[in-house]
Each structure stands twice: as C-alpha cells, then as structure tokens.
Design a binder for these strands. Structure first.
Lengths: 211, 211
DNA sequence: AAATGAATAATGAATGTTCATTCCGTTAAT
DNA sequence: ATTAACGGAATGAACATTCATTATTCATTT
C-alpha cells in the first residue's frame, strides 16, 4: 500500500505523452456531473477517458483523490474565467454585467463543470486544500461588494456575504431549472434575469424605508 | 410469567404495527440528507429508524422505492406548509411576505427535509409519479406570478417560470451558504434578503430602461 | 380470566452483486 | 534488452436484498 502510493506520488512525468491526467480529470468531471459522486464507479471514468482502470490509478491514488483533483481543476477554471483581467476594486454596473456575462458563458460552454461545482455532496470528500480553493473566488467577490457598498453603488442593507449568496443562488437556480427542463433560457431571458438580480443588490432610492 | 428477555422486549412494544412506515421515512430523510442518496447504505437507515433491515424491506420494495416515498412525503409536507389557506389568486406584497415567512420557517424547522429536497441527484431515481408531485407546487406558484404580472404588481419583463426559478434559487442559495458555514442568517438578514428578492421580481418604475 | 396456536410481523445472518483497488502480463520507448 | 507505461482480469470489501427463524398478536377455546 505504501509502495503504490509513493510510485503514484513521485510520477512527475505522466508517461511520454502528456495530457492523460487531464483527459482523466475531464472525463471524471463529466461522469460525476451526470451520475453523482457516489453514483459513478471508477471503470466508466477510465472508459470515457480512453484509458485502462490501472492507468487511472497510476495518476490518482484513489477515487477520492480524483474527486479532489477534479474539483480543484474545475474551480480553478471557473475562477480564471470569471476574474481574469477584471478590476474588482472598481465596481460598477458594467463590472456587474461583465461578471454575469462571464458566468453565463461558463455555464453555457461547460455545463457539466458548472453542475459538478454545484453538487451538494462533495463537501464530505474535500480535503482542506480543496476547500480553501473555494475562498479564492469568494474573497475577491466579497471585497468587490464591500467597495460597491461604500461607493453607494450597491445596497448596504444586506451584508456582502449575503448579497453574494443571494446572487449566486439565483444564478444557479435558473440554470438548474433549465437543466431540469422547467424552462428554456434565451439570451434575452438571461439579460432580464441579470437586470432583476441587479435590482436586488443595487443601491435603491426607495431604501431608507426601514424595516 | 414471561422470561426476562420477553419483558425487555415488550418494553419496546415490538410487533404492534405502529407508525413504522413513518419512522423509516423520517430516518431515511435524515440519513439521505447527510450522506447523499448513493452514499447511504440501507442498514444505517434501518438502524436510525430503530428497526431491522428485513423490516424495512417489509415496508418498501427497494431502496429506490424508499427514496421515492421519502421524496413524495417531503414534497407534500413542503407544499402543505407553503400553500395551506393561501389565496394565491390575490397576489400582493403581503402574500409574498407570507410565502417567504413560510419558506423560512420550513427551512428552519426541518433543515434536513429542505436539504433533501434540493439534492441534485434524486432526479435519476424518481418515478413519473414522484416527478408530477413537483408540479403540484410549481403550477400554483406560476399562476400567482401570472396574475401578479397582470395586476401590475410584479414585473412582466421576466416570464413567470424564470421569476420563480430566480426567487427559489436565491432562497436556496442563502440557506445553502448558511449550511456550509459561509455565513450566519439572523432574522434581520432574512428580512433584508426577502426585500432584496422582492425588488428583483416586483414591478419597478425604472423598468423600460436599457435592453 | 387464562391458555392456545394459527396468522402476522420482525429480525439479522446469508446471498449474490457491484464496487474500489491491485497485480501482473503485455506493449511501447530508448 | 531494459525500463516504464499501460490495460483489464483478479481480489476482497461493501452493498442491496432475501429468507429461514424467532417474536408478537389476537380470535378462539377452556
């Protein structure tokens, strides 16, 4: 057991042809998204990746390790896609629209990745390291909201974490509804949804109303 | 007189058919919510319900049947809790607040039930009948939104299904965030979140704006 | 009332299946 | 020819489900 582990760990050279690790992660993501984490056996993943089961275990110590790798990879890609070249310290309506557009294009281009990331049950699997990956997205967004509130752009009636959860939940909700065939989302629908979300979090002149 | 063994046994009142079916469904719900559908073996469910595995199979043909029963039961309870004595055909801000308050009290009183209902992976398990249960909640809500839009109370820029998905997603999102310890929700937070959601779906004078 | 036993309910060890992981014969690279 | 990568049958553990056995009920008899 210890021997196998060290072999897999020291494998800095993934065969002669790179990309196999990637293939496996990509395949894992798709199958996991479709059948759930506990729900998918390892062999189908290897199958989809076009490698043998034994090979898969050369690259990952266990199914759990594979899950964590897939999670980190997916989260990283989402972060890069969302935050690349974005000046979060200068919130504006345009910045909000950009974020929405990027979120949308991600959910459209990689629906399985998006679904995978929203699955409930990975949290029992994730290592501390995987969990911290979560923060890398949340913290910048949180700062953006704080600044937006200071600037008077965003409503300061709800705390930043809550605003993010609300917004994120709404976004996830409409794509989940589409996936389950409760509705279809046209580009126009997405724009209207975006504007509705903006109304929820933006500073609003009718605010002082008090509870 | 009976032996010591039978005395101990009769203390638990075995044999008599009491709400055993209910017990099992309730236990199943809790364990499923915690470990996921594929993730929970049947024996722990029987354990938690205080019955033997064989007994569980007296009441349910299979694990899948149990999942469906638990799902229908949970959905029914949510529906009853949300819609009881509610005049959905007369939408108003007050009605919206009532719905929110009921949703909140449900999520607070039965967090596992709420989580179970939002789990991604039941859909591959559900029978047609279980699925139709879904509609029993969605259809009345949809009607309410349609009427609200006709009345000028709700924005008609987004279609009813989308409004519901947005609102529902936001609600689920904030409770999910709380469950994962990304935030804590005070009663005040919940009211502010409610108001933010209202802004997202309510008719708004600044509407005609940008495309 | 107390006793009986046929009918019903409950049980958990036993069964066959599916899964994660390993192991070793084969293949490709140098 | 040597070494490392590969694949998939083989292995043992965990699982869903069954079934032979035990416990409980209750209508009937005494």
């Amino acid at each position: 057991m210890a021997t196998a582990t060290s072999i897999a760990n020291t494998a800095f050279r993934p065969g002669k042809e790179g990309g196999k690790r990637e293939q496996i992660i990509k395949a894992a993501l798709q199958v996991f998204a479709e059948h759930g984490l506990h729900g998918t056996p390892v062999p189908p993943i290897a199958d989809k990746a076009g490698v043998g089961v034994g090979t898969l275990y050369r690259y990952f110590d266990s199914k759990e390790a594979l899950i964590n790798a897939a999670f980190c990879d997916a989260k990283q890609r989402l972060q890069d896609h969302l935050l690349a070249d974005l000046d979060l310290l200068n919130p504006s309506r345009a910045l909000f629209d950009t974020l929405w557009a990027r979120l949308t294009s991600f959910a459209r281009k990689e629906p399985e990745t998006f679904q995978f990331l929203e699955m409930q049950d990975h949290h029992s699997y994730l290592t501390a390291e995987s969990r911290s990956q979560e923060q890398a997205l949340l913290i910048p967004l949180g700062m953006m909201v704080i600044i937006g509130q200071r600037n008077g752009l965003l409503s300061d009636r709800i705390k930043p974490d809550l605003a993010i959860a609300l917004f994120w939940g709404a976004f996830v909700g409409i794509f989940k509804a589409e996936r389950l065939n409760y509705l279809t989302l046209t580009d126009d629908d997405l724009k209207r949804a975006r504007d509705a979300c903006w109304l929820a979090v933006a500073a609003n002149r009718t605010e002082g109303a008090s509870q």
